[in-house]
């Protein structure tokens, strides 16, 4: 997309630099320890599994790594039967 109108364009190198900075910071930190986001994911799923049986195919996980904040989105389909058991 060319947001910048006819002829003139913004420079793309700063975007490239910023994208690489975020990515490499993450990848270098991965070299000596496990990714925090992945640890969180595993522990959250384990906690849920202690209470209900979840179908691994009904789990959708989305991740967005940002410079200062990352988001981890876990969408789990829990059968209603199990929910009733849980509240009983």
């Amino acid at each position: 997309m060319n947001f910048f109108g006819f002829g003139r364009r913004s420079s793309s190198a700063p975007v490239a630099r910023e994208r690489l900075r975020i990515l490499l910071e993450h990848e270098r930190s991965m070299a000596d320890r496990r990714d925090l986001m992945l640890v969180l994911r595993e522990e959250i799923l384990a906690a849920i599994r202690r209470h209900v049986t979840i179908d691994p195919e009904k789990v959708m996980i989305k991740l967005d790594r940002g410079a200062t904040v990352s988001t981890l989105e876990i969408d789990i389909e829990v059968p209603n039967v199990e929910m009733r058991l849980l509240s009983a």
Partner: peptide, 12 residues
């Protein structure tokens, strides 16, 4: 992933 602009969203 980088060329597609999805590098921050790779989980698996």
């Amino acid at each position: 992933d980088l060329v597609m602009g999805a590098e921050r969203r790779v989980v698996y």
